[in-house]
Amino acid sequence: MTAFFNMGGYGIWIWPAWGVTLAVFLINMHFAAREKKAILQRIRRFYNRSPHESITS
């Protein structure tokens, strides 16, 4: 197990590289989810406030 993480001495380079990749993937998913929540909230607020006068495009 230790040998696997050590990766022939290259572990200190490999794991940060894979770790930062995982972090970037998670950040992108988080941003997309947060954006969805914010936009849905904004649209709901829009419809709750304004009486029905929606414009059809």
């Binding site: 954006e35 969805k36 936009i39 414009i55 059809t56």
Partner: peptide, 14 residues
């Protein structure tokens, strides 16, 4: 995922 978010925002009034 994000394009769908922005489509909703853009088309909010439809």
């Amino acid at each position: 995922w994000r394009m769908r978010n922005h489509i909703l925002l853009r088309e909010m009034r439809t």
